[in-house]
Design a protein around this nucleic acid. Structure first.
Lengths: 294, 294
DNA sequence: TATTTGCTATATAAAAAAAGTATGGAGGAC
DNA sequence: GTCCTCCATACTTTTTTTATATAGCAAATA
């Protein structure tokens, strides 16, 4: 059986005669008679009752006709779906987002979803290391990460913006109340809650280095593994933190606020990271294009 | 697109290589490469990433593969359904039953349904004339009717049994209490509830004729259009009825009972009636075969 | 009654499509 | 470097499908 036979069959069923189908399909009549006979032979079934006025569906023929309609529908659906997947309008997009970049991510995803509503979005929040592992295993397509200037992950990446690192505090722990910026000397004897330095992020180490250059070593009250925890510790009054400003701005109801260090500036760069795969799926391509067009 | 291309595609997807599919399908490798390329061209989509170790599905390819599985499943279902319809194991069977033959019909249908559970049964109860009209219009396939011996409907028919006509009464209206049969003279001055005679049934006319031959004309208290109504009238004490015995036996809880007329016997024959159609559907054929094998 | 008409089925030739054969290039494995 | 496996392409052969021509058949028509 093949689609052509089904197509001929359906045309004959609709026209009520083989010659009618012949005219409708712009095909000579004998081929249609022949393909019909082949179809009947293969199914072992009589599909039409032939008369000299045309043909009439048997019960088996009616059954086949109903099924053939569904078949053609499925065929169209199949082709459309496949083309949609290729075009990136359909499929799965799996994203990883670090704690500190939810804002950036959700805004971009909102625009993406408006343009490609049929794509299934999978989003996961986690620590940069874990997300990079998942990316390596192919379980995620694109990550929202933060980069220190100059650092690279050995992958494709695109900078989405920049974000100054500032001290984080609440009124009780403010080292320089009433001032817009904190002189580094004001940090002497101030307990700090800092993000643990690792091979990805060294902001905290850089800040401590700067303090040492200024002639003192601040006390680190707490090493935090992630930014939400650091926010919580700062809010609880454990000490002063040091984080990208946008993270703090993303908590408008919080009593926590930021101030730059007067003599030291550092920046983090929200970036998009993906595998250097020439065969990435359509929706990843479209997503990256959208991100690039920002 | 055709089934062969889909089949080749699915084999390649499952084997993970064109040459593997070639071996599995017992087809040379170039035709498969070629059909794959044609399929990709037609869809305008890359389905596989070719490497020198084999091929890997793209996202679009995975989508097509999933759809192709469903497509093959639909194909099998379609062929099976069509063959089932032809064989009479699936389809629609529309039956008409007169009031007096529900018993006969349901018993036969029970056996039929046990053997062909997938056939959709449509049953309709009605007056013989209405049912014959529906049969003529093709809205019913087979009727359960009653025939007077010798009468024919100009259609194909099969006698399913025989059923004597007897007087119907309740204790208060019994014309011959204590006797097993009623002498026809006992009907003198007994009011009767009789089925209206028409061009199909003349039992009542025959009984009245017999009474006249016996020297009297009974009084007809009520002309009934159908047997259930006649049963109700007899049960209400309107008079004595005259019906096939099995109808009364089918109401075991009823106070109504039958007795034969001593000097007059008549019979009705439950019959199956159908159109003389050489192209009747499979399930009608199977149903008639089952009825014949009784 | 004979003829015409409209339909389907069959036979055969022509065209198109698919399969097979031979071969070349490309990337790992040894 | 050589071999091996895999895929793609060029070309030939086979198979399938289509088109043309024709016959049979039944109903409508003259």
């Amino acid at each position: 059986m093949n689609f052509k036979q089904l197509e001929y069959f359906a045309a004959v069923a609709e026209e009520g005669s083989i010659s009618g189908a012949s005219r409708a399909l712009h095909v000579a009549q004998p081929p249609i008679s022949r393909q019909l006979a082949l179809l009947e032979d293969e199914l072992g079934v009589t599909l039409f009752l032939r008369t000299n006025k045309g043909v009439a569906l048997t019960e088996a023929g009616r059954c086949l006709y109903q099924h053939s309609r569904q078949m053609f529908q499925s065929l169209r659906t199949m082709a459309d779906s496949v083309r949609d997947v290729e075009a990136g309008a359909r499929g799965q997009l799996k994203l990883g987002v670090i704690y500190s970049d939810v804002q950036t991510a959700t805004q971009l995803l909102k625009r993406y979803h408006a343009q490609y509503p049929q794509v299934e979005l999978y989003v996961r929040m986690g620590a940069p290391g874990d997300l990079l592992d998942d990316l390596g295993r192919g379980e995620l397509h694109v990550l929202f990460l933060r980069s220190q200037s100059g650092r690279s992950f050995g992958l494709r990446e695109r900078v989405l913006g920049e974000d100054p690192l500032e001290l984080v505090m609440c009124p009780e722990t403010d080292p320089a109340p009433g001032q817009d910026a904190v002189p580094i000397q004001a940090l002497r004897n101030v307990p700090m809650c800092l993000l643990r330095s690792d091979d990805l992020w060294n902001y905290s180490r850089d800040l401590l280095e700067e303090c040492r250059r200024a002639g003192f070593t601040p006390s680190v009250a707490c090493h935090c593994y992630d930014t939400p925890m650091e926010m919580q510790m700062v809010q609880a009054g454990f000490g002063v933190g040091f984080l990208p400003r946008s993270i703090v701005e993303a908590h408008p109801g919080s009593p926590v606020y930021t101030k730059p260090v007067l003599e030291f500036s550092a920046k983090s760069y929200p970036i998009l990271v993906w595998e250097n795969d020439p065969y990435q799926s359509g929706c990843v391509k479209r997503f990256l294009e959208l991100a690039a067009s920002t």
